[in-house]
Write a protein that binds this DNA or RNA. Structure first.
Lengths: 206, 206
DNA sequence: TTTATGTTTAACAATTTTGTTAAAAATGAA
DNA sequence: TTCATTTTTAACAAAATTGTTAAACATAAA
């Protein structure tokens, strides 16, 4: 029994499919295109993952988990609130730079089929919202931050981080950026977002 | 020659297809589903619009024009800058309430095929960006607004307006809102966005 | 009523895509 | 090497979808 070979091919398909979907943005890639990208026979996709659908679920779970772990770690540290949020912004943008089309996928899948939202849900205790609210309210009562509900705070934050990823093409066209300029724009944007949220310059966070 | 009947059916297909695509969110509706929604034979779609593709282009052009006209009118008035922006926010949200899935469509189409961005581009002279920049810079030099580039200003603004539309399902699930609550949330959000942008309460604009 | 024109329909062909399967190939233990 | 198991392949079947076409139908003018 060659367990190594199996893992090799299975992992190869997953890796290449991730590239195709979340990096190249071919969200409706066919099983044939996935097979081509991985350089394997199309039937292997069904052999290892049963269906296109199940492959997708597997990929999503992996990539979402990667993102959620990073965020959970940041939000569970003992840093001051504003530092945490600065790191949070950085993590969202960086993950977006790694998988530029992941958010597009989440958005189109959930729009097409709201039930599939389950695939993207994190465990109750780790939801960013819960991890942020208490500390946010403390800061507000101390007068360090203008009053705002946790709901609006989070949605503002995530809107400012995610929309420029979703609208890559629109923004590039509209503001005449090539890929390099767009990347640079996103990196610089971390500071812009922090300033929009807190109305003050972002401190350096390693 | 029954010109009336033709316009009736043609307009019927367009109207029902708009509902299907931009209101119900079935962005990948088949020609059969479109025909069913309009209660006509599927071949009529090809008779009037040649292909599914061309129907889509027609619909888009109409809906985008409707949106762009509203925005152009707001930005070309002589109102004070902050009033204009308040109206601009209102118009973006209201259009999103009318066609909840239009932005999803723009985003997925341009991600899938960047060339198709042409379909969404407005004429150079009417681009919101151009209409806002000069006045924004004036306000900044008068010290009424914190320094920010027009690019970042616009992208912040549009991110805050559009993301909650794109992420309808995610937000509803995450914050436990039904459709009514979500609508209310969007309407109230106009003030939240204004405050996030200008750091002060939004004045009443009719 | 006849005729020409425009509108609608059912049936068909072509293509694309998914998933299955039986057989071939590779692998590794006995 | 032999044999059992796993992996891979090519070929096939089924379903979905788009676009075409020829004929039926409706309408209004002559």
């Amino acid at each position: 029994m060659s367990k190594e070979k199996e893992l090799e091919t299975e992992a190869l398909i997953k890796d290449k499919a991730k590239v195709l979907f979340f990096q190249k943005g071919l969200l409706d890639a066919t099983t044939q295109e996935i097979a081509d990208e991985a350089g394997v026979n199309r039937a292997l996709i069904h052999y290892y993952f049963r269906s296109r659908e199940q492959l997708m679920e597997t990929l999503l779970e992996e990539v979402m988990l990667e993102k959620q772990e990073t965020i959970r770690e940041i939000l569970k540290t003992e840093h001051p609130f504003k530092i945490k949020i600065a790191k949070f912004i950085g993590a969202l943008i960086d993950h977006g730079l790694k998988y530029p089309y992941l958010e597009n996928f989440v958005i189109s899948e959930t729009a097409r089929n709201p039930d599939r939202i389950k695939l993207f849900r994190q465990k109750e205790k780790n939801r960013s919202h819960e991890l942020v609210r208490q500390q946010l309210e403390e800061e507000i009562s101390k007068g360090n931050i203008d009053p705002i509900t946790a709901q609006n705070f989070m949605i503002n934050l995530i809107s400012l981080c995610n929309y420029p990823l979703l609208a890559k093409t629109v923004i590039q066209c509209f503001h005449g950026m090539n890929d390099t300029e767009y990347r640079k724009f996103l990196v610089q944007r971390k500071q812009v977002i922090y300033k929009a949220i807190f109305n003050e310059e972002m401190p350096d966070v390693e």
